[in-house]
């Protein structure tokens, strides 16, 4: 077990390394001179060439790119993502402050998506080609095709402004979370519906299902244990991956519902050309994504005896 987790961690390292490269490159290719920007920020309206050159030296921007990267990477590894150009506050502290909000939103969306997508998809797979299955497939495809931001605005129009059942935006009670979580979960619920349907279909087609039925086993046991236990691994992998996708999707939902999470912070950073914030966002979401994929891998490892025993033998 420990060895397996360690091996997975070793595989995750290059991905995170790649993420730092991309984040660093973004800072380099970004339009505008950071030195001039920093000077303007601190009150110099029209900095001279000499002042800019001095600032470049002070910020270390005159060093070769690899050197800059290594020193930047050193800071990142110690948890220092730099300070926001705009607010002059530590980026990592701001992310840490906002993360619980986004995580709560993402987690509620994930739970909703699983509650909606998994049972309906499994039922569609079991009763494949029935009326319910056909209808469910169209619904899933429609949910997959709805632009999330538009759905959010329409839901606000109907449930918050016209019917006045739910608050339009902001944070507070659990009722504030309903609409954002619902919007955030739609695409994932649809994907999960399609996937679990396919998984159920494939699992039931196995020769071992006929064999289990021929032994007279109860149908519920055949479906839940013999078909689904083996099919759990792909579902877990995908659900783990979805969590990362939700983080990306949370940006729009946070903007529309005015939720102070990391997505909103990132968008603010983008419009203020606040590059440390953008870089921090890239690194942060990459890290969360990698962690959840890793967790999903470990969960697969636990449910799959072949992996478990194979690792012991090897």
């Amino acid at each position: 077990m420990a060895a397996y987790v360690l091996r997975r961690l070793l595989l995750a390292a290059p991905v995170l390394f790649g993420a730092t490269l991309i984040a660093f490159t973004l800072g380099v290719v970004a339009p505008g001179d950071p030195a001039a920007g920093a000077l303007m920020q601190s009150g110099f309206d029209a900095p001279t060439q000499a002042e800019i050159a001095a600032m470049r030296t002070e910020l270390g921007l005159d060093r070769p790119l690899p050197v800059q990267y290594v020193s930047w990477l050193g800071n990142v590894l110690t948890g220092d993502f730099g300070t926001s150009i705009y607010t002059d506050r530590s980026v990592s502290e701001e992310f840490a402050r906002r993360l619980p909000t986004t995580l709560a939103l993402a987690a509620s969306a994930l739970v909703l998506a699983i509650l909606i997508g998994l049972p309906s998809g499994l039922a569609m797979g079991y009763w494949a080609q029935s009326f319910g299955d056909r209808a469910g497939r169209v619904v899933a495809l429609a949910l997959l095709s709805v632009p999330g931001f538009w759905l959010a605005l329409m839901l606000i129009l109907v449930f918050a402004e016209t019917l006045r059942w739910l608050p339009t935006s902001g944070l507070g009670s659990w009722r504030h979370m309903i609409l954002p979580a619902l919007v955030l979960s739609t695409g994932m619920a649809a994907l999960l519906m399609r996937l679990s349907r396919a998984v159920m279909l494939e699992a039931l087609a196995g020769a071992h299902i006929t064999a289990a039925r021929a032994r007279g086993l109860a149908e519920i046991r055949v479906v839940l244990i013999h078909a689904l236990k083996g099919a759990a691994a792909p579902l877990i992998t995908v659900i783990g991956g979805y969590f990362g996708a939700i983080l990306g999707g949370s940006v729009i939902v946070e903007v529309i519902f005015a939720i102070p999470g990391i997505g909103q912070y990132a968008v603010e950073g983008i419009f203020r050309r606040d590059y440390p914030v953008i870089q921090g966002y890239v690194l942060f979401t990459a890290a969360v994504y990698v962690v959840f994929n890793l967790a999903a891998d470990v969960a697969c490892f636990v449910v799959n005896p072949q992996l478990r025993l194979g690792a012991r033998v090897a």
Partner: peptide, 22 residues
């Protein structure tokens, strides 16, 4: 279902895929 296994047993075709792998 009551009769399968108890009155009629089966040794299925395709032994490689007929045991539940997990």
């Amino acid at each position: 279902r009551q009769m399968r296994g108890a009155d009629i047993g089966l040794i299925p075709q395709n032994p490689a895929a007929s045991l539940t792998p997990v």
